[in-house]
Amino acid sequence: MVQLAPEGVLTPLRIGDFTTEAGVEIPDVTIAYQRWGEFRGDADGNNNVLLVEHALTGDTNVADWWCDLVGPGRALDTDRWCVVSTNVIGGCKGSTGPASPHPDGRVWGSRFPAISIRDQVAVEHQFLRVLGIRHTHAVLGGSMGGARALEWTLMYPAALSSACVIAVSARASAWQIGIQAAQISAIERDPDWQGGDFHGTGRSPDAGLAAARRIAHLTYRGEQEIDERFGTTPQSGENPLGPYRSPGQRFAVESYLDYQGVKLVERFDAGSYVILTDSLNRHDVGRGRGGLNKALASTQVPTMIVGVDTDILYPYHQQEHLSRNVGNLLGMAKIVSPVGHDAFLTEFRQMDRILRRFLDLSTAEVAAGEGRGGYSI
């Protein structure tokens, strides 16, 4: 019998040792998770589990960041589905990461190994097996979560009936690696980074993390949206057009980006930011699989691809590439929004329609195949 945590409660689960694909062992890994809705069906076959993957600085609280999409009667209807979300390994929201205790009693810090998207998925697969769940109805997520969902279809195709891959590519482009490497550099050049061993010293690379967030946030939002909101307007009470440049005299958009940086510093660990950003740089489904198109064609998991028309970080042509090459395309959807990459987190009405369509199509696929356990959702 599957035993899940109380609904909505962040719960740590020890899943045992894990060895990264690069060969480093992480002993006694803990993965934190939350769930909403009751489990129904066969733990080894057809059931109602939806594994929802968070983005880079997201967390397990899907009911918060997809608040209009999770709950009774909503697209991810918790009267019908069992929604499960983990905090990724390397993160800082309850799962083992750089800020976690090392077996020697100190903090992992700089000793925490590099993590790939494939490692994230392998850990999650191990987590589900510890829970007693060997199959899910669907894996879905956006951005880094979309990369995880895509890797699920390639690494463990027998463990899921469908996938929804949102706002991501088949591999990191040189531009993405460049912009993400700049963010990592901003943190590592902060003197308070201390080589990654800043935990417990009373000093942390807050300035570097805030700078990284400012860079990143410009790729998360659309150029049109940012310009319409701020244009060349000065921040209230400040004058960026004075006779001398001053960091205290800002345009309104600078103040907005400063605010985004402060917000992230208050809730996220710089070590986790570096580890997880690096994992996005390592994303490449074609590596070791004969190249991108051969790898994508090899999966037979019914997969829906979703993109955003104004996405700067993962341009829509990258989702078009996925849709042309995945072995079993369930559907393709475009979010039309000035918001850019973050539209999958803000355009709830469009996402509602997309997710309902995805679940209708994936349920029909299971029914057509008569399923493994004959479970009817």
Results as ranks from 00 to 15, higher is better:
Pro191Gln: 03
Trp193Asn: 06
Trp193Phe: 14
Trp193Gly: 08
Trp193Arg: 03
Gln194Gly: 09
Gln194Met: 15
Gly195Ala: 05
Gly195Ser: 13
Gly195His: 11
Asp197Tyr: 02
His199Trp: 07
Thr201Trp: 12
Thr201Asn: 14
Gly202Gln: 07
Arg203Trp: 08
Ser204Cys: 00
Pro205Thr: 04
Ala207Met: 07
Ala207Asp: 10
Leu209Gln: 13
Leu209Lys: 07
Leu209Pro: 05
Ala210His: 06
Arg213Phe: 00
Arg213Glu: 00
Arg214Trp: 02
Arg214Glu: 14
Arg214Val: 06
Ile215His: 08
Ala216Glu: 00
Leu218Pro: 04
Leu218His: 04
Gln224Ala: 14
Gln224Tyr: 07
Gln224Leu: 10
Gln224Ile: 11
Glu225Ile: 13
Glu225Tyr: 12
Ile226Tyr: 10
Ile226Thr: 12
Asp227His: 13
Asp227Ala: 14
Arg229Pro: 05
Arg229Ala: 14
Arg229Asp: 12
Gly231Gln: 14
Gln235Met: 08
Gly237Pro: 05
Glu238Phe: 01
Glu238Cys: 06
Asn239Leu: 00
Leu241Ile: 10
Leu241Asn: 13
Gly242Val: 02
Pro243His: 14
Pro243Val: 12
Arg245Cys: 13
Arg245His: 15
Ser246Leu: 03
Pro247Trp: 01
Gly248Trp: 13
Gly248Met: 09
Gln249Pro: 01
Gln249Thr: 05
Gln249Tyr: 03
Val253Met: 01
Asp258Val: 01
Gly261Thr: 02
Val262Arg: 08
Val262Lys: 10
Val262Asp: 14
Leu264Ala: 09
Val265Trp: 04
Glu266Ile: 00
Glu266Phe: 00
Arg267Glu: 07
Asp269Arg: 09
Asp269Trp: 09
Ser272Pro: 14
Val274Ile: 11
Val274Ala: 10
Ile275Cys: 15
Ile275Val: 15
Leu276Gln: 15
Thr277Phe: 01
Thr277Val: 09
Thr277Cys: 10
Leu280Val: 10
Leu280Gly: 13
Asn281Trp: 00
Asn281Leu: 05
Asn281His: 13
Arg282Leu: 15
His283Asn: 09
His283Thr: 07
His283Gly: 11
Asp284Glu: 10
Asp284Leu: 04
Asp284Ser: 12
Val285Lys: 03
Val285Thr: 04
Gly286Tyr: 06
Gly286Phe: 12
Arg287Met: 06
Arg287Ile: 07
Gly288Trp: 13
Gly290Ala: 13
Gly291Pro: 13
Gly291Ile: 11
Leu292Lys: 01
Leu292Gly: 02
Leu292Asp: 09
Leu292Met: 13
Asn293Cys: 15
Lys294Gly: 07
Ala295Cys: 06
Ala295Val: 06
Ala295Leu: 02
Ala297Arg: 13
Ser298Met: 06
Val301His: 10
Val301Lys: 08
Thr303Phe: 03
Thr303Asn: 08
Val306Asn: 02
Val306Pro: 09
Gly307Val: 04
Asp309Pro: 05
Thr310Val: 00
Tyr314Trp: 15
Tyr314Val: 12
Pro315Val: 09
Tyr316Pro: 12
His317Ser: 10
His317Pro: 05
Gln318Trp: 14
Glu320Leu: 08
Glu320Cys: 02
His321Gln: 07
His321Ile: 06
Leu322Gln: 08
Leu322His: 10
Ser323Lys: 05
Asn325Thr: 11
Asn325Lys: 03
Gly327Gln: 03
Asn328Val: 01
Leu329Ser: 05
Leu329Ala: 08
Leu330Gly: 04
Leu330Met: 11
